[in-house]
Design a protein around this nucleic acid. Sequence first.
DNA 1: CTGTAAACGTTGGCACCGCCAACGGTAGCA
DNA 2: TGCTACCGTTGGCGGTGCCAACGTTTACAG
Lengths: 153, 153
Amino acid sequence: MKRQQPPPDAMPSRILELPTWLISRAYAQSHRLLAEGFATAGLRGYHYRLLAALEDFGPASQAALSRRTSIDRSDVVAALNDLAGHGLIQRSPDRDDRRRNVITITPAGIKQLRALDKIVAGVQEKLLAPLSAADRTKLIRLLGRLVEHEDQP
Amino acid sequence: MKRQQPPPDAMPSRILELPTWLISRAYAQSHRLLAEGFATAGLRGYHYRLLAALEDFGPASQAALSRRTSIDRSDVVAALNDLAGHGLIQRSPDRDDRRRNVITITPAGIKQLRALDKIVAGVQEKLLAPLSAADRTKLIRLLGRLVEHEDQP
DNA sequence: CTGTAAACGTTGGCACCGCCAACGGTAGCA
DNA sequence: TGCTACCGTTGGCGGTGCCAACGTTTACAG
């Protein structure tokens, strides 16, 4: 019985046990799953975040979207260009403040967002598959506490 | 009393509660801390992984290092170039197999690795600061179980 | 023994996410 | 009014992770 894929060599143990390493592995997995899912729609994580923010908060300026999604203003520009290209959002000048664009999600955008929501839910399921419901809750609580303290010096 | 930094707007809740989102936030934090630490030595995560593998397993070919660190062969080339430039490793042709280079960590490399180990340990501490010892153990176990199943179809 | 397959190092490229600097245009405020 | 801040946009950079292709060298099957 021969191994089909060459055996994955062991990493240095000092790294293998690091929390930072485990987190980076978990992130790699979740990123891979999400990217695969989003790619079926020709989109990426940024697009999902933006569409979700638009549905949750309604039409908004690009700067507001940047703040709400934690995506850099310049990256918002590019992602919105993509979304507009797919007809998922609409950009129009703000008549009350000529610095701004008002971004609106289109019906097609809402429809796409629904599909992405399903994909994202499926990814959570796949990612957490090895854990019981109780363990999932525990993990989420623990990660939440790590992340809460994000902006402390 | 005025806010020095503009208030961070809230993200869409559907995203804020996703395990994949929490993991990506945790990764961002740990990556930021590690990058800051490594940068003080002018190095990056790849370099640490390679030095650690060299110390743990002894001199090795680049392909072996690639497998042991899960860094792509082509990226190993570049990272080893950097390390050689800093005098932390030595590249020499393998006389028994002329396809290979033998990579050896230098005394300076070992010394640098010691410093990086300390930095990395400090980052674990900073990252896990919000958690009790028991919670840290729990988190590590849970993440370990997520990551174990990495290569399942 | 010979021809094919595999491994190796290297170059070059691409994607995603995140971040920063600078610009011209606009709005708000002292 | 003039200064400051905000806005959208362009262009760039870095870290991590991939993949394709190449010439060289080794290993293996016939």
